[in-house]
Design a binder for these strands. Structure first.
Lengths: 134, 134
DNA sequence: TTAAATGCAAAAAGTTTGCACACGC
DNA sequence: GCGTGTGCAAACTTTTTGCATTTAA
């Protein structure tokens, strides 16, 4: 992978963010430092870094995808009101840490089990406030 | 809710399918019986039926949403190759059957936990065959 | 009769792609 | 110098919406 300033700065800005930005949010941040960068370049680079395992893509159901500069496994919680995603510092769930541990009540219909996708849902502090003040 | 022939036939076709069709797949099926129906009507009705709890929406990350005529809770498995979704007849996972059962290793960052979304990933029989024959 | 539902077409939202040019190695 | 990467604009995919018309209750 050729190291371009675009690539470097995209990764840097993503790693410097605790939030899990969408491609567009990240594009706007990077644009401050590289005003001529295009959104397509951000998408292309994010996709490539995901393939290389440098970052994670959080393909949030139905919404814009978000990206996480931390490539290590951890859980996420998504706000059902504003769509924001944060890290959730809980212990790995034993029943799910290995496909072989999953208890079956029948067969898999011929599927080969590969893994799972688990995402927690909640209401973030900001949205709790908004709701209370209405 | 007013009962129109569109609404009736959409629900009927969805319930008659073991697969979990996308709005477009379902539209094509319904169109055979109601040739003048529009895709927008299918989307509008599916959305309404989800709100009423008559059906489930499977908002598969990054892909088209799929719909499930069975409103009762059960797990799904998604083929990582073709995107197909099937039911997975496994027992509910204890650690996750209630938000209060989730073991925490820290705080929730101010989030109010509401639930979770769990989807299994695998390779479907058809795609296992395709892969083997290459 | 009248409010809700429909069909159509156009818009919206998010992401990807074709292409000519730029630039890292 | 070669080939990957970039910027731009246009295309694409999925879903939603505005509006005039139809229809169930």
């Amino acid at each position: 992978m050729r190291m371009t300033s675009q690539r470097e700065i995209i990764l840097e800005e993503l790693r410097n963010t605790k939030s899990h930005p969408t491609a567009e949010e990240l594009y706007l941040k990077v644009k401050r430092r590289l005003p001529r960068i295009s959104l397509a370049t951000v998408y292309r680079n994010l996709e490539k870094m995901v393939e290389l395992g440098l970052i994670q893509k959080i393909a949030t159901s139905g919404h814009q995808s978000r990206f996480d500069g931390n490539p290590n496994f951890h859980y996420h919680i998504r706000c059902i009101h504003c769509g924001k995603v944060d890290d959730l510092p809980i212990r790995p769930i034993k029943a799910l840490d290995n496909p072989e541990n999953i208890e079956l009540d029948g067969d898999l219909g011929g599927y080969k089990l590969v893994g799972f996708h688990l995402e927690f849902l909640g209401v973030c502090p900001e949205c709790i406030n908004k709701t209370e003040n209405n």
